[in-house]
């Protein structure tokens, strides 16, 4: 409709330039300064957060001045060091970790079997989806009374609830990971002549590794929480109590600083597993393979 016709835009002169090296800019790639590198380091940034948190805690607790309900950071640290020095915390921690590792391993094995059945047979798929739909929403702690009835007070009951908490989360993630492996990669694997188990382990497992790792992390978090909670309830009866029992025991004697020390240990283990074990596992696998951005 408009009167202006873009076909008749005013002609402009053509030109060509010779490209020369930039002068006065210095190196095209310049190394970052120390402060810039430090700011880019996530461990450093998170460390700063922890320090600020500890400082806030100390100041608030001092202002509150009520060691029975809220001990200061330094008191807690003292209780923690005492507990470690006397060997009580390491011993309780060892008991807890041992139970955890056994339960986690059993849970993973069953999850792997379930998922393999689910990717190879249709009845396996149906079983897995029905079971996960039924049991995944069921909190492991809710099974504790039943576990007590079946296995009595003690480690077998704890392992039972851990297996329950790990199994479904891991199986669900593994399965959805296998399903999301691209068709091209599957076909490529099959042209290499891979079949059955070797196809699952050489193509599907590594290709689904991001999802499997996410499942392992979720499974770990579920197992750790469930275990501490279960120990709080009946850890002592197995003869030697774990960390959960340590917390419960100290609350009964109103040693609040030790309760906090127990909680700190629970968190510290969580941080180490998340930040050291899983993080390095990620760095050596999926991040190196370009399956996850840093």
């Amino acid at each position: 409709m408009s009167e202006t016709n873009t076909m008749f835009a005013s002609p402009r002169p053509e030109f060509e330039h010779k490209v020369t090296a930039p002068v006065g800019l210095g190196d095209v790639a310049k190394p970052l300064s120390f402060a810039e590198k430090l700011g880019a380091n996530p461990a450093f940034r998170r460390g700063v957060i922890l320090v600020v948190l500890a400082l806030t805690w100390e100041l608030y607790a001092r202002w509150l001045a009520s060691p029975l309900t809220f001990p200061t950071f330094l008191e807690t640290l003292q209780a923690l060091l005492d507990g470690i020095a006397s060997g009580i915390i390491p011993q309780r921690l060892a008991v807890t970790l041992e139970t955890l590792v056994v339960g986690y391993a059993i849970g993973l094995t069953i999850a792997a079997l379930f998922t393999t059945a689910a990717v190879t047979t249709r009845i396996g798929t149906d079983l897995l989806s029905t079971f996960t739909a039924m049991f995944n929403p069921l909190p492991a702690i809710a099974l504790l009374p039943l576990a007590l009835l079946w296995f009595g007070l003690g480690r077998p009951s704890l392992i039972f609830v851990i297996v329950h908490s790990v199994l479904w989360a891991v199986a669900l993630n593994m399965h959805s990971g296998f399903l999301s492996v691209s068709e091209t990669l599957r076909m490529a694997g099959r042209t290499f002549g891979l079949r059955g188990m070797s196809f699952v382990f050489k193509i599907l497992v590594p290709a689904a590794f991001p999802a499997i790792l996410a499942g392992l992390k979720i499974g770990w978090a579920f197992a750790w929480r469930t275990l501490i909670a279960a120990e709080l309830v009946f850890g002592v009866s197995s003869g030697q109590g774990g960390l959960g029992w340590f917390i419960f025991e100290n609350r009964n004697t109103l040693d609040t600083a030790s309760v906090f020390a127990g909680l700190l240990t629970v968190m510290a283990v969580g941080l180490v597993v998340e930040g050291v074990i899983f993080r390095s596992l990620e760095a050596h696998t999926i991040r190196r393979w370009g399956m996850q951005s840093a």
Partner: peptide, 12 residues
């Protein structure tokens, strides 16, 4: 077989 998609290589 060589496929059209770039994700035919094993990323790991």
């Amino acid at each position: 077989m060589v496929f059209q998609e770039f994700d035919q290589l094993l990323p790991w």
